[in-house]
């Protein structure tokens, strides 16, 4: 496709690529901040789809077309399901109108209980900060060498071969795990369905 020489040169130049990376990265980070800061669980679910969309953009920049599309396909639908479950388990209206009261939540309790409750409340923040630093240090301590060889354009084929040869065992394990989850879900759903029949029999 030599008719797009100049465009191609420009798009694949290091400057453009870096700029694009920063745009997508900033988008992903700000959206993920949005996910945890939004009080409305449904809306944070929808923002989460945006986060995964941005990450699939990163995959695209790494020439991993198939992975990026799989990311979109699976996470778009998967998170819609999460949103649906959130819709079913919460009452959006009451959530929207709920007044957030802070402050003298703990005043009635004794000191020790108060301390434990505060500790419980702080745990997620602690875990988040801890894991961020762990990952940050792990990434920094590794010495990364840029790959110079060209990535195959037909990476579907490469992926398929890898999954069926080198990584066939982990792949199968993952499949079995999913199957187990599926069967478990069916069992739970089935047991719940039988329940009204028992009740009516008792009546």
């Amino acid at each position: 496709m030599d008719q797009y020489m100049i465009l191609k040169d420009y798009v694949s130049s290091a400057d453009a690529e870096t700029a694009l990376f920063y745009v997508i990265a900033i988008l992903a980070i700000s959206l993920s901040v949005g996910v945890i800061s939004d009080r409305n669980i449904i809306r944070s679910g929808f923002i989460l789809i945006g986060v995964f969309g941005a990450i699939s953009g990163l995959f695209l920049m790494l020439q991993a077309q198939f992975l990026a599309l799989a990311q979109v396909m699976i996470y778009a639908v998967g998170i819609t399901l999460v949103v649906v479950i959130a819709l079913m388990l919460t009452n959006p209206r009451s959530e929207r109108e709920a007044v957030i009261t802070e402050g003298d939540e703990f005043s009635q309790e004794t000191g020790a209980v108060q301390f434990i409750q505060r500790l419980q409340q702080g745990t997620p923040a602690f875990v988040a900060v801890f894991s961020f630093f762990t990952i940050y240090l792990a990434i920094r301590s590794e010495s990364w060498t840029p790959v110079t060889e060209k990535v195959s354009t037909d990476n579907v084929k490469v992926l398929g071969e890898a999954l069926t040869t080198v990584y066939s065992l982990p792949f199968e394990f993952a499949s079995v795990l999913l199957l187990a989850a599926l069967i478990g879900a069916i069992m739970l759903a089935k047991a719940e369905k039988r329940q009204p029949a028992i009740e009516s029999a008792e009546d």
Partner: peptide
Amino acid sequence: ITNLPTGIFYILAAASLPVVALVMAGW
């Protein structure tokens, strides 16, 4: 220029997006 090596997969990925919009519109 629109010929992608993952063509049909790309189309399917695009086709899976509208459902997000439907849930969004409904909610």
